[in-house]
């Protein structure tokens, strides 16, 4: 019950902030539309799935890191920890709320990419959409964790380029990971976004079985690990 109370509260906060909701829902479509316009169809078919994977992750990462940082600095987190609310209920409350938003976001962006922009996807749209949602959940979990390392919203915003851009570069957006120098490819093996991109590429290419299951499982594992570490950054007693 407390779990859903928290998810409901986070959604109420979003409802009061139509601009953020518009950004979450419309921005991915706008960018996918833009890419489909500037790129030849063959290139767009390669890049499109990656866009579908990256936007939910990036948007959720930034929104969650700021939302939870506010929770830390406004005193509401301290107050929550004096109530019967468990830390897991708080963390999963956020995951449920942003997970629902991610479902909406993925539905919109996948439908738009395929039916409006003519993106060719060989795999199931449900699997591609589901992969986008898992990416969003991972973005939420990592955003929760990242908020512990920022003191101000200004610093939290800066995590986006620091954390996301290098991962995009190494994760195979601009060139395949297999073609990278050994050192970089080894580093990219340890970056979560590499598996986001791998998963959505394989889902789109209708790869099934363990080849798709492995990157998806890694996404879920990173999400759970980030939540576990995140709960350690929520001490009930503070100095």
């Amino acid at each position: 019950m407390r779990l859903f109370a928290t998810a409901g509260r986070v959604l109420s906060q979003l409802r009061h902030d139509p601009r953020t909701v518009a950004m979450m829902a419309l921005l991915p479509m706008l960018l996918v539309g833009l890419f489909s316009w500037i790129m030849p169809a063959r290139l767009f078919d390669q890049v499109g799935p990656m866009l579908i994977a990256l936007f939910p992750f990036t948007v959720m990462f930034i929104v969650t890191s700021i939302a939870t940082l506010r929770e830390r600095t406004s005193g509401t987190l301290e107050r929550l920890l004096t109530t019967p609310l468990r830390k897991a209920e708080l963390l999963f409350g956020y995951e449920i709320a942003f997970g629902l938003v991610a479902v909406l976001q993925a539905t919109l962006v996948v439908s738009f990419a395929v039916y409006v922009c003519g993106l060719k996807i060989d795999g199931s749209l449900w699997v591609v959409g589901g992969t986008a949602v898992l990416n969003a959940l991972m973005g939420t979990a990592l955003g929760l964790l990242a908020s512990a390392f920022a003191r101000t919203e200004f610093q939290a915003v800066q995590f986006m380029p620091v954390f996301v851009f290098p991962q995009m570069a190494l994760g195979g957006v601009f060139m395949p990971r297999s073609g990278m120098p050994d050192v970089l490819s080894a580093i990219s093996d340890w970056l979560p976004l590499s598996y986001s991109i791998e998963a959505v590429q394989r889902a789109s290419a209708n790869v099934t079985g363990w080849d798709l299951g492995r990157p998806l499982l890694i996404l879920v594992g990173v999400t759970l690990l980030a939540l576990l570490l995140g709960s350690l950054t929520l001490p009930r007693r503070t100095p």
């Binding site: 906060q13 009061h16 107050r79 109530t83």
Partner: peptide, 21 residues
């Protein structure tokens, strides 16, 4: 004042009330 500034008065209080069941 430890409240959610982007929620209404009753939404704030309702949330905490639900945490206490």
């Amino acid at each position: 004042a430890s409240v959610y500034t982007d929620l209404s008065v009753s939404e704030n209080i309702r949330y905490f009330a639900r945490l206490y069941g």
